[in-house]
Computed example of a mutant assay.
Amino acid sequence: MTFIEQYGLVPYKPWQLSRYAREGSCELCGITSDEVAARYAEDGYRSAACSTLLNFDHCHAHGWIRGRLCTACNTDLGTAVRVGWLDRSPKRDAFLTHLGKCPDCPPA
């Protein structure tokens, strides 16, 4: 279930994020928080607990939470948009669908 299906359209307010579950799966690649924890443990990280939490990706222009993303997808999406690589990204279609979850942004 996506974040929006579970909670509806929610503004990004850092002081209220504890209301929402960070566990689940990345809405772009599908990796679960348990799988992320296992990868961190395999790599020898001592504290995998904070790394298993998924990020609340949000529209920086309008403030709506678009969904939960793993750190890798969140970084890839931000870099693709910021640097202008969106059209060259192999995740282009998934990124555009995800970015379109903000109702105040123009369609891509």
Rank of each mutant, 00 (worst) to 15 (best):
T2W: 07
F3C: 09
I4T: 12
E5F: 05
Q6K: 15
Q6G: 06
Y7T: 07
G8N: 02
P11C: 05
Q16V: 07
L17N: 03
R19N: 04
R19E: 11
Y20N: 00
A21K: 12
A21Q: 13
E23C: 04
S25E: 13
E27R: 06
E27G: 01
L28H: 01
L28D: 10
L28Y: 02
C29A: 03
C29S: 02
G30I: 09
T32W: 09
T32K: 07
S33K: 00
S33N: 05
V36S: 06
A37M: 14
A37C: 13
A37S: 15
A38F: 01
Y40W: 01
D43R: 15
D43H: 13
G44M: 06
S47A: 12
S47V: 07
A48Q: 00
A49M: 00
A49Q: 02
C50R: 14
C50Y: 14
T52K: 05
T52H: 04
L53H: 09
L54G: 08
H58G: 03
H58K: 04
H58A: 02
H62N: 13
G63L: 01
G63E: 04
R66K: 06
G67F: 02
C70Y: 08
C73T: 10
T75C: 14
D76P: 04
D76T: 12
L77W: 06
A80C: 11
R82K: 15
G84L: 04
W85H: 11
W85Q: 07
W85V: 05
L86T: 12
R88A: 15
S89T: 10
P90V: 15
P90W: 14
K91G: 01
R92T: 04
F95Y: 15
F95K: 00
L96T: 00
L96G: 07
L96W: 03
T97S: 13
H98W: 06
K101Q: 06
P103V: 13
P106L: 13
P106V: 14
P106M: 11
P107M: 11
P107K: 13
A108Q: 12
A108H: 10
